[in-house]
Amino acid sequence: MTTAPAPIAPAHAPVRVAVIVGSTREGRFAPTVADWFAARARERDDLTVDVIDLAETPLPPALTRDPSPDAQRALAAVTPRLAEADAYVVITPEYNHSYPAPLKNAIDWHFTQWQAKPVGFVSYGGLSGGLRAVEHLRPVFAELHAVTIRETVSFHNAWGLFDESGGLKDAAGPEAAATALLNQLKWWALALREARAVRPYGS
């Protein structure tokens, strides 16, 4: 779905990060991972964070050129927030060696919103830590003219890494990885935001 570009934030403004929670399954582990990551990001005064949970903002399952009124209302809860973001972090599990269908659906409903913006990934799963899902997502976002950053946060056998309150039992490694991801995401977000302010993408 294409819309008019959102206004570009001033150069001194914090980077606006949309954290997209990609799993919608009943009993999902995604909120635990998303809450942890969003809390880390909100500790920084150079970022603002908007968590877009696809389970709370479900989108129509079929992409059409003329969305129904119900589809338009569903998109109105998500599309402007994606457009306003300077950068994205996708929280994804690994289902059958790939990422969830609702996440692909949300990606496919949009186009201009992703263009010339960076995307980072936080993944979780079993032995692979969701990394196969991340590698499937990279070419998808490349097709949409987004820039995927190298640094990731991945939780291998994730269910045993968090305590009952949603905190990490051993936070040192994941927190270092989150810092590296956010630092790289911010660099790309600022560079691309400044570039879009000078010259609209694709012109």
Rank of each mutant, 00 (worst) to 15 (best):
V19E: 01
G22R: 02
S23I: 01
T24E: 00
T24K: 05
G27P: 01
G27S: 14
P31D: 01
T32P: 02
A34V: 11
W36N: 14
A39L: 08
R40L: 02
A41E: 10
A41K: 12
R42E: 14
R42M: 03
E43F: 07
V49R: 04
V49A: 03
V49D: 02
I52V: 15
D53V: 10
D53W: 09
D53K: 10
L54K: 09
T57A: 14
T57C: 11
P58H: 09
P58A: 05
P58C: 11
L59Q: 03
L63Q: 07
L63C: 10
T64D: 13
T64R: 14
T64C: 04
R65T: 08
R65H: 08
D66N: 13
P69G: 06
A71W: 02
A77G: 04
A77D: 11
V78A: 05
T79G: 00
P80Q: 08
R81T: 10
L82Y: 02
A83G: 14
E84F: 00
A87H: 12
A87R: 06
V89F: 00
I91Y: 05
I91V: 15
Y95V: 01
S98Q: 07
S98H: 09
P102V: 07
L103N: 04
K104Y: 00
N105V: 15
I107N: 08
D108M: 07
